[in-house]
Design a protein around this nucleic acid. Sequence first.
DNA 1: ACTTTGACTTCGG
DNA 2: TCCGAAGCCAAAG
Length: 106
Amino acid sequence: MIIQARIVAAIRKIPRGKVATYGGVARGAGYPGAARQVVGVLRRSFGLAWHRVLGAGGQIKLRGDSALEQRFRLEAEGVIFRGRRVDMKRHEFKFPPKRSAAGRRK
DNA sequence: ACTTTGACTTCGG
DNA sequence: TCCGAAGCCAAAG
């Protein structure tokens, strides 16, 4: 499985109204520390829930209008912002454990 | 094959 | 709370 596919798959698992961090997505995809690859995938791909991916601490790492749009979209999904950050305690999405006894195909 | 590029993360001051 | 440095990994040029 190539990294991009896993990252895309991980992002697709984020439910509406929830968010994840770049690092979180990377870990969820099975590549801890590959946060930058998550960025790469988000930039080069369309059709992904890019607005549900934030930086560490629930901070939006985008600049300009994109940041505003991201915030707008998240609020539209019910995500609550506290200042410039998202309330991670309520909206951070926990990715399913990578390989546990239950629920794996591979 | 090598260098650059990213919407990052974490730690220390 | 803010800033800088180091660590991180793969894709694109």
